[in-house]
Amino acid sequence: MTQSYAQAPIKTVSAANGIEYAYREVGEGGVPLVLLMHFRGNLDYWDPALVDALAQGRRVIAFDNTGVGGSSGTSPSTVTQMALDAIAFIDALDLAQVDILGFSLGSFVAQEIALIRPALVRRLVLASAAPQGAPGMHGWAQWVIDSVGKPEVVPALVLDVFYTHSPESRLAGEKAMGRMFSRAELDAPTTWQTRQAQYDAVTAWGIPSFSLLERVTAIRAPVFVAGGDSDPMILPRYSHLLAGLIPGAEIKIYPDAAHGFLFQHHEEFARDVKEFLERV
């Protein structure tokens, strides 16, 4: 029986950029799948049910980027630097090629990795994603950033952003949150410096620019774009815009779901991702 993500120990690796990265890995075989986390999240914010499903027959690696959680350094305030730091982590593990699943802010970083070092990325999954320069993405709605951006994280407010108000979605969110924080050895919490730097990066990414939208047309790796139909943080129209810009990209929007659609629909999403990654 493969070890569960909920029991996987936190490991560290030193990279050439001088950063010591904290990470967890589960599964073995296949092209490694590297997970890129959302705004303010650390290793604990990945749903073990999703990670374990993805790790059936495949090595899956989650990590804290520079300055996040248990990793050393200071969180950068640009998506480009986050991507360069992620590449440094992947290089430190001696991985010549990977698949990448980027979630929210992590999806921005994933796009940059695919543009900066195309040969590194075999396939790309972009969850709750938007392209750089999309009109209307210059910061989140005030109630959204008030819910997830205050100094003290309030679980009930996070649920309002990550799940819909339907009983089914809210119950799924509560269950996912319970799975995430059930382990004895928790990661170091993210700091206010990380919060500020990451939101600066998100805001800069969303400065409207039609010329910047063209950048993703250079992505040649196969891409699967996914999102929730009621996501208030990164609206579904940005998933459609992104999928329309990337040559050959596939898209799926999950029903009665908000920003945390991949945890709410973890079984279906894991099947869809595995089918996409394993397709000949």
Rank of each mutant, 00 (worst) to 15 (best):
S71R: 01
A96C: 12
A88M: 01
D52M: 12
L93R: 15
R59M: 01
A55W: 03
G27K: 14
D85W: 06
F63I: 06
Y23C: 06
I100A: 00
G73A: 05
R24E: 01
G18V: 07
G69Q: 07
L95Y: 00
V31R: 08
Q81M: 01
A92Q: 12
V34E: 02
V31C: 09
Y23H: 12
G30E: 05
G29T: 09
P32R: 10
G18Q: 10
R59S: 03
V98K: 13
L93A: 14
V98C: 12
D64G: 14
E20G: 07
G18C: 11
V51P: 00
G73D: 04
E25G: 06
V60A: 08
P76W: 15
G27I: 11
V26W: 07
Q97H: 08
S77E: 15
V60N: 03
G27Y: 10
N42E: 08
L93E: 08
V79Q: 03
A92T: 05
T80M: 07
L50Q: 04
F39E: 01
V26M: 12
G69K: 05
L54G: 12
M37H: 07
N65E: 07
V79D: 02
L33Q: 13
Y45F: 03
R24C: 02
G29S: 10
V68D: 00
Y21L: 06
R58L: 09
A96W: 02
S72H: 04
F39M: 10
G73I: 08
Y21S: 00
R58W: 10
D64M: 09
V34K: 04
H38L: 11
A92E: 03
P48E: 11
G18Y: 07
T80Y: 13
R40H: 05
Y21F: 13
L36Q: 03
R40G: 11
R24H: 08
M82D: 04
L50Y: 11
Q97T: 13
V79M: 13
M82S: 09
D99I: 14
G73L: 02
P48H: 04
T66M: 08
A22F: 10
Y23F: 15
R24I: 01
P48R: 11
P32C: 09
Y21W: 04
Q81K: 11
S71H: 00
L36R: 05
R58G: 05
D91L: 00
V60P: 09
N42K: 00
V31L: 13
E20H: 09
V31W: 07
N17I: 02
E25V: 01
R58N: 06
E20S: 15
R59H: 07
A53P: 07
G70L: 05
I87K: 10
V79F: 08
S75V: 13
S72L: 04
L93S: 13
L33I: 15
Q97I: 11
G57W: 10
T66A: 08
Q97E: 15
A62I: 03
L84K: 14
R59L: 05
D47R: 08
L36K: 03
I100D: 00
Q56I: 15
T80P: 02
A49V: 09
Q81W: 02
G73F: 01
N42M: 02
V60W: 03
G69Y: 07
L43N: 09
A55V: 06
G41L: 01
A49Y: 05
A22K: 05
D94C: 14
A96K: 11
V26A: 08
Q81I: 09
V31Q: 06
R24V: 00
I100L: 12
A62Y: 03
L84R: 14
E25H: 13
